[in-house]
Amino acid sequence: MQNPLEKSLPQTSVVGACTVTDCKFNENHECHAGSIEVRVSGNGAECGTYTPEGNTRPRP
């Protein structure tokens, strides 16, 4: 059992599958970005790292 005063180590996760085919980080439905940012919007969670192919700026 973990001591409640000890801080737990940060957890990492993996993107299971990406269906956004026009993102420059999507290769065969796998995200190849070095890291991603997930934002909460009115529609739920969205990828803040999304960048269309041929574009160097992330979408707002």
Rank of each mutant, 00 (worst) to 15 (best):
Y50R: 03
T56G: 08
D22A: 10
K7I: 06
G54L: 09
N55V: 07
V38C: 01
Q2Y: 07
P52Y: 07
F25P: 00
R39N: 11
P52N: 10
N28Q: 14
G34M: 14
G16T: 07
V14T: 15
E27L: 10
P10A: 10
T49V: 10
N55D: 15
G42N: 14
L9F: 05
C31P: 00
A17H: 14
S35F: 06
A45Q: 13
K7T: 09
V40Q: 08
Y50H: 10
C47T: 14
V15S: 01
D22P: 00
Q11D: 00
G54C: 11
T12V: 07
V20Y: 03
R57L: 11
P10Y: 13
C23K: 06
V38E: 02
M1W: 13
P4R: 11
T51Y: 00
Y50A: 01
Y50W: 08
S35H: 12
G44R: 06
A17R: 15
P60T: 04
A45Y: 15
P60S: 11
C31H: 04
C23T: 04
E46D: 08
N28H: 14
T49C: 09
L5Y: 02
Q2A: 12
R39V: 11
S35Q: 09
S8C: 05
R59D: 14
C47A: 11
A33R: 04
N26G: 01
Q11L: 09
G42A: 14
T49R: 02
G42E: 15
E37W: 05
K24V: 07
K7D: 09
L9C: 00
G48F: 06
G48D: 08
T12C: 06
T12Q: 08
N43M: 14
C47V: 13
A45L: 15
A45I: 15
D22K: 09
S41R: 03
P4L: 06
P58I: 09
E37H: 06
N55E: 15
E27R: 13
T12M: 05
E30K: 15
N26F: 07
A17I: 10
T51F: 00
H29C: 09
C18T: 02
Q11K: 08
V40R: 13
E37D: 09
C47P: 05
N43Y: 13
C18K: 00
R39D: 10
H32C: 03
L9A: 08
V38Y: 01
S8Q: 12
A33C: 06
T21Q: 10
S13D: 05
F25Y: 15
V15Y: 00
G42P: 04
T56V: 06
R39E: 03
T51I: 00
G44N: 08
M1H: 13
A17D: 07
V38H: 00
Q2H: 13
R39K: 12
R57E: 12
A45H: 10
T56S: 14
P4G: 04
A33H: 01
N43S: 13
F25R: 06
T19L: 09
E27Y: 14
T19I: 12
N26P: 01
E30Y: 10
A45G: 06
K7H: 05
E6P: 00
C23W: 02
C18A: 01
G42W: 09
N3T: 07
G16F: 02
N3M: 05
T19D: 08
I36G: 02
L5W: 03
Y50M: 07
L9N: 08
N28P: 02
E53L: 01
T56W: 03
V14Y: 08
D22I: 02
Y50C: 00
E27G: 04
